[in-house]
Write a protein that binds this DNA or RNA. Structure first.
Lengths: 152, 152
DNA sequence: GCGTTATAGTTACATATGAAACCATTTGCA
DNA sequence: TGCAAATGGTTTCATATGTAACTATAACGC
């Protein structure tokens, strides 16, 4: 497959430029999902991500949530203050370290999670249904390799 | 390959959730590139995208730029007003339709382009160098299929 | 031609986001 | 001990972004 040999300074074809394509695709996908739970629960993407990790790892501190979600601590702090206020997340102070908070989903939070998680999975399933089995396998493999960058 | 059969309401594993992975990867990649030209030319990603399409398609109107970049017209308007001010983009009024603008890169704009385009390509090359030829082929194919969504 | 509707682009406002400063607490160590 | 440095978390400020309203021009229907 002969690669067109464009000089480096030729205009970029955005539609074939990988970083651009990734960005467009990723935004479209994430936005479609977020619109869904945003509309139904007034839940932002960052808030949902916080809830998702707390569903898996109960009792994390805010910093740990930030690590797991790759969000910065300010974003986490803000998300938490809203989530605690709406009563979907509980926040206590760590015994023996008064700086640290101990976070978890409340009953109400779990209820939300029970609705949103399947919704998110459904979107993912939908997306993946465009691919056949072989393509799905390659995709995971490719993402694994590319992702070796980001733990910047 | 036996798929774990988690119930739909089980906690999401973000690190295996495709939309999340895409988002992390895409942000990391785009940000790395943007940091580069941002630092050197104080050029935002949206501004660079505008310049990139004008390099390819001279004489577009603002709306056409918006279509090509998939950005909304407000973002384009803002980017343009900065680019025109810094003198990298020229703006004239369309003969016969005074609403429309006629946009293009200036000499100075081309000079910037000559630096940034190779820089962007280099990042892309770097990213793709993590994949072998077969994986690259699959990636393009997979993106093509997944991208069938987004022309929302 | 002339009023209505559509289009190109900008402005205004409200919200989101990130960086840096900040407060409280804890840790490390002389 | 006790004080400097580090850590968890919040607040502040400056910037970015999206939505809706607005201005100017053009197109359409009669």
């Amino acid at each position: 497959m002969a690669e067109e040999h464009h000089p480096d300074h030729a205009p970029l074809e955005l539609e074939n430029f990988l970083p651009y394509r990734l960005s467009i695709l990723s935004n479209a996908v994430s936005q479609a999902i977020a619109d869904d739970y945003q509309r139904r629960f007034d839940l932002s993407m960052t808030e949902w991500r916080v809830m998702a990790v707390l569903a898996r790892f109960d009792g994390l501190s805010a910093r740990e949530v930030a690590e797991r979600t790759l969000m910065d601590k300010v974003a986490v702090s803000r998300a938490l203050s809203k989530l605690v206020e709406t009563g979907w997340v509980t926040r206590a102070t760590h015994d023996g370290d008064k700086r640290r908070s101990v976070l978890g989903l409340s009953e109400a939070g779990w209820a939300i999670h029970e609705v949103v998680a399947p919704m998110a999975r459904e979107h993912e399933r939908n997306l993946l249904s465009r691919l056949d089995e072989e393509e799905r396998t390659w995709l995971v493999r490719i993402l694994d390799k590319l992702q070796a960058i980001e733990p910047k």
